[in-house]
């Protein structure tokens, strides 16, 4: 099962395709810092789902602000 760091690395990989020339950290806020629209957030989620062959419930999204939040939630749900 992927661990936290693997999730973080893959989130970075996807974010680089959405937002070029931006430095990311685990504390980068997806909406307030990167300015991702709701559609871009869903695009990120779909990439993660396809890559790890998982389904991510929309219910978790209100608790996700940063790259780290998302990676932690993924690890919690999927090991």
């Amino acid at each position: 099962m992927p661990n936290y760091n693997i999730y973080v690395d893959y989130i970075y990989t996807v974010l680089r395709t959405i937002k070029q020339d931006v430095e990311f950290t685990e504390n980068t806020d997806l909406v307030t810092e990167l300015g991702l629209s709701s559609l871009q957030v869903m695009e990120l989620i779909e990439h993660i789902e396809d890559h790890f062959d998982i389904s991510i419930s929309l219910n978790i999204l209100p608790d996700i602000n940063t790259v780290g939040d998302l990676a932690r939630k993924l690890q919690e749900l999927n090991g």
């Binding site: 389904s55 419930s57 929309l58």
Partner: peptide, 27 residues
């Protein structure tokens, strides 16, 4: 309605039956 239900909400890509099948399989 889905949000009010309290159920786990999973969305599949629009009219993409391959994606729907993947999600059904994962369930």
């Amino acid at each position: 309605g889905a949000q009010l239900s309290g159920a786990e909400i999973i969305r599949f890509k629009h009219s993409d039956t391959n994606d729907l099948e993947k999600r059904l399989r994962r369930l």
